[in-house]
Design a protein around this nucleic acid. Structure first.
Lengths: 226, 226
DNA sequence: CAATCAAATATCCTATAGGATTTGATATCG
DNA sequence: CGATATCAAATCCTATAGGATATTTGATTG
């Protein structure tokens, strides 16, 4: 499943789909925690608040359910997915440990000069955001961090790896947001190690750097459960 | 308030969902290739042939789209997903190589006596089929093979790994069916190696056996592209 | 005859309505 | 007072209808 905003590139834009509009609206509200995890989502209420009929709303919710952002029970309706618990977070990190380490290695082997430049600039932007700043500053950091990881995943030569990781990133993002995570200088240092390995085209080193980064990242998050 | 006849514990049977019925019907037709890969799927035609309205049909198709069995284009409708091409098959095997090797290792560490017994009986059933070369016999083999792999994935301790693999397995199944894949005796030998490692609780050996099995499996399938 | 255009048909997308079920509030009983 | 039953409202699920778009058919022209 792709991000909702990758329709760019289509010169001929067909008339927009209402279902798509609703999807984006709900996606935004879920990602910003305006709709609380676990809370009920009534179709009829959305009909009134959004001013569109049930049909496109149900379709949008169906797609969100496929992404795991929403859960549906027959005759009971939709709910926003629950917050990640410890076990689930652990599962996600086990997956990332496999897929992102793979992606880092393959990207290190295939990356072009232009890609390196783009990635480096993302990295620099992140370093420009001070650690321990406000929550909105973290939003900017998180956006770059997701782009940084996604950049390598997308260019690892395996689209399934990218799609699968994308599914998880959404939930990690929500988790971070909920626990008021901050940008850290540690993460920047770990990214730097990864950048160097990638720039050298050293796949083994890139894999190791990514592994180390994910392990540290995980232990930083686990503090939230204490 | 409880109903008079729900003493069966979890089997709370709510009135069936039409959307669900349609989903199952279409799923079956797709999995048996009654609906050809790449062919168009018209909602209005299904309304006439299934005798239900558009709404549950659209919802069923939405779910199939999330599973990757169907693709939708705005204003153009739904199509059955294309057959796997070589690049895509390769991507799936790269993923399986990571996730199933992981699953085999974790399962070898955690498996109970009862689980071992169940897995062994599945394995034996497969070996009994092995001689038969007919197409229907292969169907039986494929069913067990899927159960065999799924059994370990489901018990590896990581539900995301299981869910992700499940998504791919559907496509592998279709691919196999289309190319009338055979060669079951080799697979049985490889399974035997895996069983031994699992029974010994030797995670490293189980991982290696799974890795070897997948490599061989992949090269068997690649013959279809020659 | 091939290519182009126009009308007719098929299909998709959205809106609306109504039956079925759940949920929440009120009343009743022990 | 607490628990259960009853009724009303909210909500879900499905059916149907109609406007918008795509596709096919048929006619016209070079």
């Amino acid at each position: 499943m792709r991000r909702p905003d990758d329709t760019a590139g289509e010169m001929l834009r067909r008339p927009i789909s209402l279902a798509n509009e609703v999807y984006e609206a709900l996606y935004g509200q879920l990602m910003s925690l305006k709709i609380e995890p676990g809370s009920r989502i009534s179709v009829d209420q959305l009909v009134r608040s959004l001013g569109v009929s049930q049909t496109p709303i149900r379709e949008a919710l169906s797609r969100l359910e496929a992404q795991g952002l929403v859960v549906k029970q027959h005759l009971l309706g939709f709910r926003a997915a629950d917050q990640l618990d410890r076990a689930r977070l652990n599962e996600i990190y086990e997956m990332r440990m496999m897929l992102e380490v793979f992606a880092a290695g393959r990207f290190a082997e295939r990356r072009s000069k232009a890609e390196l430049k783009e990635l480096r600039s993302l990295d620099n932007e992140m370093k420009g955001i001070d650690a321990g700043q406000s929550r909105s500053a973290y939003g900017e950091f998180a956006k770059r961090d997701a782009a940084f990881h996604g950049f390598m995943a997308k260019r690892c030569g395996n689209e399934l790896v990218f799609d699968t990781l994308n599914r998880f990133h959404i939930h990690v993002h929500l988790f971070r947001l909920h626990f008021h995570a901050r940008a850290t200088t540690d993460a920047n240092k770990e990214h730097e190690q990864l950048m160097i390995a990638v720039e050298n085209g050293n796949a083994a080193a890139a894999e190791e750097a990514m592994r180390h980064h994910l392990e540290r990242s995980k232990s930083r998050f686990e503090g939230a459960f204490e």
